[in-house]
Simulated scan of single mutants.
Amino acid sequence: MKVYISNYLSKSISIVDYSTFKLEKEIQLGDNIYPHHFCIDKESKMIYIPSSSNGILYVLDLEKNKIIDNVSIGGNLSQIVLCNNELFISNEDSNSIYILDKINLCPIGIISVDNMPHGFDFDENVNKLYVPCINSIVCIDVISKCIDKKIDTNFKAWHIKIDKMKKEIYTSTLDGKLVILDEETMDIKRIIEEFLLPVEICFNYKYRKIYITDLGYKNIRILDYNTLKYLGNIEVDGIPQGLEISKNEDLLFVSDTQRNSFKVYDVKSNKLIKEIRVGKEPTTIICM
């Protein structure tokens, strides 16, 4: 098993061995490829990387360790997700979601949404893609390629995560909130305002905790999963951005954009147990 980290400023993907937490390799992507977010096709061993600098989607072959294909989409590309062999890419400039066939990169369609669609989360059980925009959250049916539901809001939604156990949607906002919605109705259930600039969210079902990286406070906020009460912080000594939980849920993975490192924390003690230097400005983390 490997951990993959995108390094925005060094234009690279770092690969860390999951068992030893040693840097295995850093793949240089080339000029003008700034990887903020990416997705991995485990079957074909391909990484799909939207570059915000030039509006191009790149395909990285993990066996060859090089870019083998690309397609120009245009605009400020943000996040990408693989849904049923189709690629959905958010474009903040055109306020839309582009859909491509993953095999030949041919366009399938475009879905217009609201202002600045940024984050994504896909619920494969119901084939729904949730997209946070400024002042709204949009639910897209990936089979029909149509908007299934939309809720207008008075907060600036940014990143999003589905709690598939409770069937709830957690959204971090640019105005310092964590908003929780019912996944089916998209009604707002609760708003928590104990943040400055929350980003990524992840759930630890084993130890019943919720973790949120906060760029403003430069730490990881911890909530009780059942009560949503504030439990404390993990002080990162840097700027946390990317966040992921290990498969056994005993470890928390964090990308530190200030120290250019990938950090591993023990979830029982909240102590740092490993720091691995990666590329400049690491952002997204994916375990595969």
Rank of each mutant, 00 (worst) to 15 (best):
V3L: 15
L9V: 00
I15W: 02
I15Y: 05
D17Q: 06
K22P: 00
Q28R: 05
G30S: 04
D31N: 14
H36I: 10
H37E: 13
Y48T: 06
I49F: 06
Y58F: 15
L60R: 07
N65G: 05
K66P: 07
K66G: 08
D69L: 03
D69Y: 08
N70V: 00
V71R: 13
S72G: 11
L77Q: 05
I80V: 14
C83M: 00
N84G: 00
N85R: 09
S96A: 12
L100T: 01
D101S: 09
C106T: 11
N115K: 14
M116L: 09
G119L: 05
D121W: 00
D123C: 03
N125T: 12
V131K: 00
I134N: 12
I137P: 08
C139V: 12
V142Y: 00
K150T: 05
D152Y: 13
T153N: 02
A157F: 04
A157R: 07
A157Q: 01
S172G: 06
L174G: 15
D175A: 07
D175R: 04
D175M: 01
G176F: 08
I180A: 09
I188M: 10
K189P: 11
K189E: 13
P198H: 06
I201H: 11
K206P: 12
I212R: 04
D214S: 05
D224C: 13
Y225K: 05
L228Y: 15
G232D: 10
G232N: 07
E235R: 04
L243W: 08
E244Q: 11
L252Q: 10
S255C: 03
S255Q: 03
T257S: 12
N260W: 05
K268H: 10
K268I: 09
K271Q: 15
I276K: 05
R277G: 12
